[in-house]
Amino acid sequence: MERSTLNLWVGIFVLLGFFSFLMLAFKVGNLNLSSSNETYIVTAHFDNIGQLKERAPIRSAGVLVGRVKAIQFDSKQYNAEVKLAIDSQFKFPVDTSASILTSGILGEQYVSLDAGGDDKYLKNGDQIKLVQGAVVLEKLIGQFLYNKAQDTSSTKGAAK
């Protein structure tokens, strides 16, 4: 085969491969060059993180604003220290509250940020003070049954 046709075919092949890489990266994957990957890290201490995992989304008003960077057990305070990497283009007041919620009934857990009203903004390394951990279903059911039992026994006592 002639050299130039061979080069042409290989060139077409490589370009096709490159285009499919671009398609996979941008159309299928979540590679996004426009949003700079610069983030700032804030920490939050939760009593219980439930099934929260690293790289779980951080949402505010339902919009993705960052991802969970790391989860560690704080052996001094006996709770979970969660490092939140928030995209630098989103600024939150220092009295922002963080809570762990679940998307849908069986969905993944994510961190929700609700902005406060302070005029100072969170910086890299700050801590979010207002937190609400994950709701543990077993505890909730246990509490419900306990309350129910208490109710029935107290109404019985009143009837006597």
Binding site: F13, V14, L16, G17, F18, F19, S20, F21, M23, L24, V28
Partner: peptide, 12 residues
């Protein structure tokens, strides 16, 4: 690797 990328793209 190029073929694998093409395979995935075609599959999608």
């Amino acid at each position: 690797p190029l073929l694998a990328l093409l395979f995935s793209a075609m599959g999608i």
